[in-house]
């Protein structure tokens, strides 16, 4: 009964939003230029997908995203394990990290442009820079926070440093690693789009900005919706994979909470 109510209210809210947009746009034809009705956006979006313009830009963005994310994951995870495991290395890198960390990452875009010009490598570089932080810092936390009793246990069973790392520390730190990776997912998308808006001639960020400049508002909204969908799907996929891989972690947390 209660479920039904929630469901009804949800549908009602959704219908209200859609109707408000549609009617608001239709009721003010002088606004159509900025604010086309949804019924116009969808066909236009479908058309721009069919014409291959949107898929091309989306594909370019996705390629940048994947390369940058993979690279950031590699750097962040390896660096995090090294810095988390070796105290002296951590102390060595702590001051430079503390110096760079508070700087809002997009401020690095101009430097990236100086070094890499305005092609894809610049966009990859800045995305890698921004994404590495959460992965690196969370991994360091996870590795340093590995339960000491667990480490002692591995030692009393005679584990070598390598076995300790592979069988205990990486596993114990994996929840934080995954958290870093999840945070970075959103950051990567933001930086790809931002860098495309600032300096690129393709990619979905560029396309959105370009269509907005040319007042192709329906195309613009279409691209924004596609991007929102992409963000949603990426997040959803990640969370469901995470739920499966980290079932032991959530299970043990739930037990602890009781």
């Amino acid at each position: 009964m209660r479920k039904l109510w929630v469901y009804l209210l949800r549908t009602l809210l959704f219908a209200l939003c859609v109707a408000a947009w549609e009617l608001g746009a239709r009721g003010n034809p002088e606004l159509t230029e900025f604010f086309p009705p949804l019924s116009l956006i969808f066909p236009t979006a479908v058309q721009s997908i069919a014409q291959g313009e949107l898929p091309r830009h989306l594909g370019s963005s996705l390629a940048t995203f994947l390369k940058a994310y993979a690279l950031a994951a590699f750097i962040g995870l390896t660096g995090g394990v090294l810095l988390g495991r070796w105290r002296w290395l951590f102390h060595l890198f702590e001051p430079p990290i503390e110096l760079l960390r508070p700087l809002p990452t997009p401020a690095m875009i101009p430097i990236a442009i100086l070094i890499f010009g305005i092609d894809e490598s610049m966009r990859i570089a800045i995305t890698v820079y921004a994404c590495t932080w959460p992965i690196l810092l969370n991994t360091i936390d996870g590795v340093r926070g590995a339960e000491p009793v667990l480490i002692h246990t591995a030692h009393t069973f005679g584990a070598s440093e390598r076995q300790l790392l592979l069988k205990v520390i990486l596993r114990a730190a994996s929840p934080q690693m995954v958290t870093g990776l999840r945070i970075s997912l959103g950051i990567a998308l933001i930086l790809v789009v931002t860098s495309e808006m600032i300096a690129a001639v393709d990619g979905i960020g560029f396309y959105i900005l370009e269509t907005a400049r040319n007042f192709e508002v329906a195309e613009m909204f279409g691209a924004v919706l596609v991007l929102a969908l992409l963000g949603y799907l990426l997040n959803k996929t990640f969370v469901s994979l995470e739920g499966r891989a980290m079932a032991w972690y959530y299970g043990s947390k739930k037990r602890e909470a009781r």
Partner: peptide
Amino acid sequence: LVFQEYNKSLMPW
């Protein structure tokens, strides 16, 4: 050595 904190010494994964 079997540790006092057995709940922490078992691997939850």
